[in-house]
């Protein structure tokens, strides 16, 4: 599985990366591969606040709809509009063009509790 060395991960297959003062979130390469072709993405409204672990988006593949959970508490400041016309960006570029949202962290210390790439890889390979 491909990993982004600069990102931290959740067991539920989201990645989060520092992006200046903000954070950017997506789903892992392992997740997109398990889901199969992504055909629709439902993103939250900009300005909406979520707690760590809240479902903030839905990714729909050919097979099923899956909730995506925010790895840290925060307020949405941007959503990836390109996914509306090209949801398969998540399949093709899970760590770059396929990002979901950017957020402002309300508790930056939560970062330290997330999985480092090697730890996530170990978790994901158990599946």
């Amino acid at each position: 599985m491909k990993l982004d060395a600069n990102a931290r991960y959740r067991k539920s297959h989201e990645w989060v990366r520092k992006d200046g003062a903000q954070y950017v979130v997506g789903i892992s390469d392992h997740a997109q591969e398990s889901l199969g072709d992504i055909v629709f993405v439902e993103l939250p409204a900009v300005g909406k606040a979520f707690k760590q672990g809240d479902a903030f988006a839905v990714v729909e593949s050919v097979k099923a709809a899956s909730d995506v959970y925010l790895p840290m508490s925060g307020k949405i400041v941007a959503v990836n509009d390109a996914l509306e016309g090209a949801p398969d960006l998540i399949n093709r570029e899970p760590y770059s063009g396929g990002w979901l949202v950017k957020f402002e962290a309300s508790n930056p210390a939560e970062w330290d509790g997330l999985l480092e790439p090697s730890a996530y890889e170990a978790e994901a390979s158990k599946e």
Binding site: G36, D37, V62
Partner: peptide, 10 residues
């Protein structure tokens, strides 16, 4: 197989 490695859409 739900899909082959090609993927359902392709």
């Amino acid at each position: 197989p739900i899909s082959y490695p090609t993927g359902s859409v392709e």
